[in-house]
Amino acid sequence: AEDTGVRVELAEEDHGRKSSIALRLWVEDPKKLKGKPKDNGAIEFTFDLEKETPDDVAQEMIDSGFFHESDLKIIAKSIRDRVALIQWRRDRIGPRIQ
């Protein structure tokens, strides 16, 4: 995945069984964003792999004032790339504890 300057990581161990997981997002390189982020903290949130889309979360982060509207795409892409990796890993490994 291309480096967007925004880092999204798992905020908890993923055992591959729950549809919702905790993720943590923070801006590693603010110069890559169009707008100025509200602060440089890490934002932790829960994401439902089955029911939600990265764009939903990105829009809610903008509504909540964390990022500027013009950064919607880059925030959504950063979340999408991490979610794709989690899904790929789950498809390969499956639920670890049967």
């Binding site: 903290g41 949130f45 809610e60």
Partner: peptide, 27 residues
């Protein structure tokens, strides 16, 4: 504590905490 919580109108909670220095790229 240095954690702040923001709840979006759709109900999602965002918990903001400081990023460990080690994780921030050199500015």
């Amino acid at each position: 504590s240095s954690f702040t919580q923001v709840v979006h109108s759709a109900g999602r909670r965002f918990i903001v905490s400081p990023v460990p220095e080690s994780r921030l790229k050199e500015q």
